[in-house]
């Protein structure tokens, strides 16, 4: 077997940058939800301030991938590795943005107290956080079963989201003065639901990487 050192080094670099992005996104979602539960303004501001680092990682992945295509002309699985890195980086970057959106909700709630204890939202976020972790694990170990598990987890997240919306709508109709915060909390539900969709996309990317086929796990 011939070793293509420059290509292999580049592919390894993409992998470690994706790992780095994955663990950062996991942390930022965790921190954003904690900031929401505690309405912690300072922590919300810190989350927003750190977002450019994730964007920078995504740019770096694009650059390394483009360089590999231009100089190494990867084909077959090597090519799929690069294509998947582009897509995963973009999914992870969006997850970071959505977590920042949660932090922005915290800022908009400055001076308020929570209209209700948060139960389902943290549950939803916890599932999504696990999905981020597992999608990255599926990628590293090229584990298709784990990748397909995303579809199930995503259904659970969607079900919780519907439940949260119903609950918040009921609150809004009963207490008009809660409308503004209930709206913000339903936005958070939407953000978390989107994060789970992006984790599911990563599951799809893993299936594509391993099999060359493109399933739709978001259906």
């Amino acid at each position: 077997m011939i070793v293509r050192k420059d290509l292999d080094d580049g592919l390894e670099q993409l992998k470690s940058m994706l790992l780095e992005m994955g663990s950062r996104v996991e942390t930022v979602l965790h921190d954003a939800m904690k900031a929401l539960e505690q309405l912690d303004q300072e922590s919300a501001r810190a989350i927003i301030k750190k977002d450019p680092e994730l964007n920078r990682l995504e740019d770096q992945i694009s650059e390394v991938g483009a360089k590999l295509i231009a100089t190494q002309q990867p084909v077959a699985k090597d090519l799929r590795r690069v294509l998947v890195a582009f897509r995963m980086a973009s999914d992870l970057e969006r997850m970071g943005d959505l977590s920042v959106d949660i932090a922005k909700v915290v800022l908009r709630m400055e001076g308020e107290t929570l209209i209700k204890p948060l139960i389902d939202l943290p549950r939803m976020a916890a599932i999504s956080q696990t999905m981020i972790y597992e999608s990255i694990q599926a990628y590293i170990h090229e584990d298709i079963d784990l990748a397909y598990k995303m579809a199930n987890d995503d259904d659970n997240v969607d079900a919780l989201y519907s439940q949260i919306l119903r609950e918040l709508f009921t609150l809004m109709t009963q207490n008009p003065n809660m409308i503004s915060q209930a709206m913000l909390l339903s936005f958070v539900g939407r953000y978390v639901e989107r994060i789970a969709d992006h984790a599911t996309n990563i599951g799809e990317s893993v299936v594509y990487l391993v099999t060359g086929k493109r399933p739709d796990l978001n259906d």
Binding site: V3, A76, G212, K213
Partner: peptide, 19 residues
């Protein structure tokens, strides 16, 4: 064949890993 060959030998060859 160049994005998703069905044989590992093909993948290795077109990826420049042997031959």
């Amino acid at each position: 064949l160049f994005t998703n060959p069905s044989q590992q030998q093909t993948d290795d060859y077109i990826s420049g890993r042997f031959g």
